[in-house]
């Protein structure tokens, strides 16, 4: 009997990690970013469902580190390091950042998809994590699944089928 692979789910503004044979999945990415940082050598991956570009946008109170690009990347690196991974071996793949609705003269917050993409790339660069592949922008929702075994990221959309990056 073929074994069913366990899927570790990542909710909105949430973060999780896994190792093979588990998979990481987050569903319904719109303007949010599905960020995966992984290390192929130690076969570990962390996925975050990032909603906003920068933690400086947060109002005072408890900070959810998985919600913002800057804090999510820092936390993901720390998590991988706790499994013995070296930063030099860490790589990233990202998907999401769509513009779900189009408005004439849209306000800043409505452009959050493209801004999320820019922010994630900027912070990955700051932390010197290589971005291996991306599927970003457009106006489609995405559901993504990451397999830490071969570092493949499967992206499913409603209108444009499936791609693997």
């Amino acid at each position: 009997m073929p074994s069913v692979r366990q899927v570790v789910k990542v909710g909105m503004a949430d973060m999780n990690d896994c190792s093979p044979p588990q998979l990481l999945r987050t569903s319904g990415l719109g303007s949010c970013i599905g960020l995966v940082i992984y290390d192929e050598q130690c076969q570990r991956a962390v996925m975050a469902h990032v909603m906003l570009p920068d933690s400086s946008m947060s109002k005072p109170g408890a900070l959810n580190i998985a919600k913002y690009a800057d804090t999510a990347i820092a936390a993901a690196i720390e998590k991988l390091e706790s499994f013995g991974s070296m930063k030099i071996n860490m790589q990233a793949k990202i998907a999401g950042g769509a513009q779900m609705f189009s408005f004439a003269g849209s306000s800043e917050i409505m452009r959050v998809g493209p801004r999320n993409v820019e922010a994630v790339k900027k912070f990955l660069n700051n932390y010197q994590i290589r971005l291996i592949a991306e599927d970003t922008g457009g106006s489609n929702g995405r559901t993504i699944e990451f397999d830490p075994e071969d570092a493949s990221l499967k992206i499913r959309t409603v209108n444009q089928g499936e791609v693997v990056i």
Partner: peptide
């Protein structure tokens, strides 16, 4: 499109607070 992708858009302002 997917409900999650759509609804998250309405949560952006709220998500800055909690």
């Amino acid at each position: 499109d997917m409900a999650g992708a759509i609804l998250s858009f309405g949560l952006l302002e709220i998500s800055r607070v909690g």
